Amino acid sequence: MNLDMINRRGLVLLGCGKMGSAMLEGWLGQGLRPEATWVIDPHPSDWLKGVAANGLTLNDGMPDAPAVVLIAVKPQMMGAALPQIAGFGGGDTLIVTVAAGTTIATYEAAFGAGTHIVRAMPNTPAAVGRGITAITGNAVTTPADLDLAEALLSAVGQVVRLEGEHQMDAVTAVSGSGPAYVFHLIEALAAAGEAEGLPAELAMQLARATVTGAGELAHRAPETAEQLRINVTSPGGTTAAALSVLMEPDTGFPALLRRAVKAAADRGRSLGK
């Protein structure tokens, strides 16, 4: 990532919780200068205070016209947070937001319709550099703006571009909330192992290793997920017996996940109103 412009003009990070910290750590590792970074966070972590000791500006003023302002506060804190940075609207500062459920229209109301705004939806595996983030911009966003946002967000994983904001609720329901579904799968798989007679600790060890290992295989393998499933399923075997339950059209995974993802997407739509 070319950080020359950001190191020259500065970057403001509003909110430095788990997601903000993961991104900031990635940027610093790729060459962002602490002296070119301003962070606003009412409850800074010890790690952030340590970075501030090396030149980052923490809760003390801001540059006049930073290259990027990245908003990483929780949606319920948005009303109090946005006025602190409203003055950056209308210029050539790029506003990037990773807050869930807050629409571009909300930011345009705060910053002005002429402000370049990119809305992004990352997910929690960003904390280990394995996230995936979807981005979309408002009407005045340029290709260069999207390139800059993608370069910043790629510090914590993959980045995809959407056709428009209308796809954001579905993205939130699949990848934004999706890690929780996987964690619950681990819980449920471990509980099922216990029900078959395994000690709780062993069942959880097996479930965690199985899900994380299968995920890594899906990440590395050239085959599709469907083919990987077929590869491990012998006709008439134990896996086939389990899949006959999991793939049952009305009560199995497909129907259950359709309902779950729809519920999450519907909730995202209601939060955005």
Results as ranks from 00 to 15, higher is better:
Met1Asp: 03
Asn2Cys: 01
Asn2Leu: 06
Asn2Arg: 14
Leu3Asn: 09
Asp4Trp: 03
Arg8Ile: 00
Arg9Ala: 08
Leu11Val: 08
Leu11Thr: 01
Leu13Pro: 02
Leu13Ile: 07
Leu14Gly: 04
Cys16Asp: 05
Met19Pro: 03
Gln30Thr: 02
Gln30Cys: 02
Arg33Gly: 00
Thr37Trp: 00
Thr37Pro: 01
Trp38Asn: 03
Ile40Thr: 07
Asp41Cys: 05
His43Asp: 10
His43Cys: 03
Asp46Trp: 01
Trp47Glu: 09
Trp47Phe: 09
Lys49Ala: 07
Val51Asn: 05
Val51Pro: 07
Ala52Trp: 06
Ala52Glu: 07
Gly55Gln: 08
Thr57Ser: 15
Leu58Val: 06
Asn59Asp: 14
Asp60Thr: 12
Met62Tyr: 06
Pro63Ala: 12
Asp64Val: 10
Pro75Ile: 11
Gln76Ala: 13
Met77Trp: 05
Met78His: 06
Gly79Met: 05
Ala81Thr: 13
Leu82Gln: 14
Ala86Glu: 13
Ala86Gln: 13
Ala86Ser: 14
Asp92Thr: 12
Asp92Ile: 01
Asp92Cys: 08
Thr93Ser: 15
Val96Ala: 10
Thr97Lys: 04
Thr97Glu: 03
Ala99Gly: 03
Ala100Lys: 10
Ala100Thr: 10
Ala100Met: 05
Ala105Ser: 08
Tyr107Phe: 15
Ala109Ser: 12
Phe111Ile: 06
Gly112Trp: 01
Ala113Asp: 09
Thr115Ser: 15
Val118Asn: 03
Ala120Glu: 08
Pro122Met: 04
Pro122Phe: 03
Asn123Pro: 00
Asn123Ser: 01
Pro125Cys: 02
Gly129Lys: 05
Thr133Trp: 00
Ile135Trp: 04
Ile135Met: 11
Thr136Gln: 00
Gly137Glu: 04
Asn138Val: 03
Ala139Tyr: 00
Asp145Arg: 06
Leu148Asn: 05
Glu150Gly: 13
Leu152Asp: 07
Leu153Lys: 04
Ser154Phe: 00
Ser154Lys: 07
Val159Thr: 13
Leu162Glu: 07
Glu163Val: 09
Gly164Pro: 10
Glu165Ala: 02
Asp169Ser: 13
Val171Ala: 04
Ser175Thr: 09
Ser175Tyr: 02
Gly178Gln: 09
Pro179Asn: 08
Tyr181Phe: 14
Phe183Gln: 10
His184Gln: 15
His184Leu: 15
Glu187Thr: 12
Ala190Arg: 11
Glu196Asn: 12
Glu201Tyr: 01
Met204Lys: 14
Met204Trp: 11
Gln205Met: 13
Gln205Pro: 02
Leu206Lys: 12
Leu206Ser: 08
Ala207Arg: 10
Ala207Trp: 08
Val211Arg: 04
Ala214Pro: 06
Glu216Ile: 08
Ala218Lys: 02
His219Arg: 14
His219Thr: 12
Arg220His: 15
Glu223Arg: 00
Thr224Asp: 05
Thr224Cys: 00
Glu226Pro: 00
Arg229Leu: 12
Gly237Gln: 07
Ala241Ser: 13
Ala241Phe: 01
Leu243Ser: 02
Ser244Arg: 11
Val245Leu: 13
Leu246Cys: 09
Leu246Ala: 11
Met247Asp: 12
Glu248Ala: 15
Pro249Arg: 04
Pro249Val: 08
Thr251Gln: 10
Gly252Ile: 07
Pro254Tyr: 09
Pro254Leu: 10
Pro254Asn: 07
Pro254Gln: 09
Arg258Met: 11
Arg258Gly: 05
Arg258Trp: 01
Arg259Pro: 01
Arg259Trp: 02
Arg259Ala: 15
Val261Arg: 09
Ala265Asp: 09
Ala265Met: 10
Arg267Cys: 12
Gly268Cys: 13
Ser270Ala: 15
